[in-house]
């Protein structure tokens, strides 16, 4: 599975900057020279805390956000350089599933119409429009795949549970047989019993359809269940990248270790009380390592030189003093 489906090179993205009401503070980049690749059929997990850039990276990989600089190659083509028309023709290959299943569905339209929408919008693919019968057949296929049935087609989004709505969103994303799905916290808003169902569904769909996933989540347990490799982000950069169990069981970056230490796993109830890290209000470093201000192992070098992402054996880490 080493064939690369998607490769991002040196992506940079800074939000804001300049509006009429802005205070002209120099904005910190949400993505700061990020490079990552995803092989066909694998799941790459993007983890980190709010503001780390994981959602921005997920969206930029689909060119839902335009990067300030850098390239994204999808099957060898730089999609950032594509014209709007070429990009639209490529869209069926790459789809997104969002956290808020309700916001992603038009409340005024029935589920059946919402499922048909992708095929109506992209009807001229390969020259011929889909007939209503073809669309209905495809909807039937998808309902079956995601565990819904025809009675759901007449419903509105508010008449369904959160788990059912997320199944609708997954079905919609799959209508055009994409190769790549970027899922941004797709199970975070669901109850745990439903969350497990949807995680299982995503794993099944990947095996049956050969999908490639970029799975954005703050939940390390869920990421471990679904991801082959994981990228840990902090302050707009990838600080650690590698095989999921390597990264999660032998973290090399102090930030990864701190994240893991803060996870409350009910399967290991008496392991320890979470040792509270100190309350940090100071800003992250602009010159050296971004994490230096919060890092327990900080050394003078960390404040002088920014560590680059490097390494081998299925793991890369951006730290001057890696733990493993």
């Amino acid at each position: 599975m080493s064939e690369v489906l998607l490769e991002a090179r040196d992506l940079t993205k800074t939000y804001g900057g300049g509006g009429l009401l802005s205070r002209r503070r120099r904005a910190r980049p949400a993505l700061d020279h990020v490079s990552v690749s995803v092989s066909r059929g694998e799941t790459l997990g993007l983890v980190g805390e709010s503001g780390c850039g994981k959602s921005t990276l997920g969206r930029t990989l689909l060119r839902l956000h335009e990067p300030d600089s850098g390239e994204v190659f999808f099957e060898g083509r730089d999609i950032i350089a594509l014209s709007a028309g070429d990009m639209r023709r490529l869209r069926p290959e790459m789809q997104m599933v969002f956290q808020d299943s309700y916001a992603a569905l038009n409340p005024k339209r029935r589920i059946g119409a919402l499922l048909a929408e992708p095929m109506r919008v992209h009807r001229r693919r390969a020259g011929a429009a889909w007939t209503p019968a073809e669309i209905a057949e495809r909807i039937d296929e998808l309902l079956d795949l995601v565990g819904l049935n025809r009675t759901h087609l007449q419903r509105y989004a508010h008449e369904m549970s959160g788990g059912q709505r997320q199944r609708v969103n997954i079905a919609r994303a799959l209508m055009l047989s994409p190769k790549l799905i970027v899922a941004d916290e797709p199970v975070s808003a669901l109850d745990v019993s439903i969350q497990a169902q949807v995680v299982n569904l995503l794993v099944d769909l990947q095996q049956r359809l050969g999908l490639t996933y970029v799975f954005v989540s703050h939940d390390l347990g869920v990421v471990r269940q679904i991801a082959d490799r994981v990228a840990v982000m902090y302050g707009g950069v990838i600080v650690e990248l590698g095989d999921t169990d390597t990264v999660l069981h032998r973290p090399a970056h102090p930030y990864t270790a701190a994240l893991l230490d803060a996870v409350l796993d009910p399967h290991l109830p008496f392991r320890r009380r979470a040792s509270a890290p100190p309350v940090v209000t100071g800003a992250d470093s602009d010159i050296g390592c971004r994490y230096a201000g919060r890092c327990a192992n900080v050394a003078p070098l960390c404040r002088q030189r920014r560590p680059e992402l490097g390494g081998q054996d299925g793991r890369m880490v951006a730290c001057h003093f890696p733990l493993a």
Partner: peptide, 20 residues
């Protein structure tokens, strides 16, 4: 239903069928 961070990774989570 809660995925484990440690120990062997299960192929499928033991989800509760249906919804509340």
């Amino acid at each position: 239903s809660i995925p484990r961070l440690h120990g062997p990774r299960v192929a499928r989570l033991a989800a509760i069928p249906g919804s509340p």
